[in-house]
């Protein structure tokens, strides 16, 4: 990926700002998402809640299913590759989708290395729990970042934790004299040049979405008010009682996140949300956010 291609890939993410990216598992859901006003769809075989329930190894989705969704909608189509599985990424690039999510929701293929994303022309989005993790992914070539949250739980607490952590570390960087940046970068595993960049900008240099546990319009608006640029909703829509209504409501609340009257309006008569999971009740080895580093 040359510098110009990388710039174009970052800029596509800029055009998604203020929008909702929805997980969809078939053509019918993709059309519901498009109709509701999603800015992109994430094509995958099982939403995270089902991956969590089924256990076993979760891999890249069947390319023919992704191709069918790509054909059915005009929105940008994203799909997930396993952490470190650069051949899955090569397949998704050959399929000519719009964005690859190198995702902890799938079972990692490599516990040491993430994908070298600079070798690709296609853009990547990667998950992060803190500033160091976000900037290591950017250094590897990610054109967009999202919080990891804890996918498939319908519980926003981890997404909030990750967003607040990134913000706190950005504030620390901005407030410190430049001679302290070296030590801060070392302690937090942040590439030094990118630490300086973030200090200058007062935010991540690329678009940062919230993901992992967003289930209601209020959750989406919460993440937006915490400073993210847009939201991913995975299981939250198609695991709810009324997906089409909920999808539209989350789009409305994301656009008008700062307007309580409009978020209220979006929250009325939605039917039942997806069942939520208490994070503490999940066995440690089943937590997804700890995958990747």
């Amino acid at each position: 990926m040359d510098a110009k291609r990388y710039e174009l890939n970052v800029q596509l993410a800029q055009m998604l700002k203020g929008g909702v990216i929805m997980d969809v598992t078939n053509v019918e859901q993709a059309k519901i998402a498009e109709e509701a006003g999603a800015v992109a769809v994430m094509a995958l075989e099982r939403v995270p809640a089902d991956i969590r329930r089924d256990g076993g190894v979760a891999r890249m989705s069947d390319p023919s299913m992704i191709a069918a969704i790509k054909k059915a909608v005009s929105l940008p189509v994203m799909a997930k590759a396993r952490i470190g599985h650069f051949v899955e990424a090569q397949i998704l690039e050959a399929l000519k989708i719009d964005y690859i999510d190198e995702s902890e929701v799938l079972t990692p293929a490599d516990e040491e290395c993430h994908i070298d994303k600079t070798r690709f022309s296609i853009p990547f989005v990667c998950g992060a729990r803190n500033l160091g993790e976000a900037l290591r992914r950017v250094a590897e070539g990610a054109a967009m970042i999202r919080t990891k949250g804890e996918a498939g739980t319908g519980n926003v607490v981890e997404a909030v934790r990750h967003m607040r952590t990134v913000n706190r570390e950005i504030r620390q960087l901005v407030g410190m004299p430049v001679e302290e940046v070296t030590g801060f970068a070392k302690t937090n595993g942040i590439p030094y040049e990118l630490a300086l960049k973030v200090k200058e900008l007062g935010r991540l240099p690329v678009v940062n979405f919230a993901a992992g546990g967003i289930a209601t319009p209020a959750d989406a608006a919460l993440m937006m008010q915490l400073g993210c640029d847009g939201v991913f909703v995975g299981s939250g829509i198609f695991k709810s009682a009324t997906p089409a209504i909920r999808a539209r409501a989350i789009v409305k609340a994301t656009a008008y996140f700062n307007d309580p009257a409009k978020v209220l309006e979006a929250s009325l008569d939605l039917g039942e949300a997806m069942a939520g999971l208490e994070i503490a009740a999940i066995p440690k080895e089943q937590l997804l956010a700890g995958r990747g580093w």
């Binding site: 055009m15 203020g18 109709e35 509701a36 929105l75 409305k252 656009a255």
Partner: peptide, 15 residues
Amino acid sequence: PGGESTCLARLLKIF
């Protein structure tokens, strides 16, 4: 501005 036209069109109508 640029963005997703289907999303923008929905929001313009709804609001």
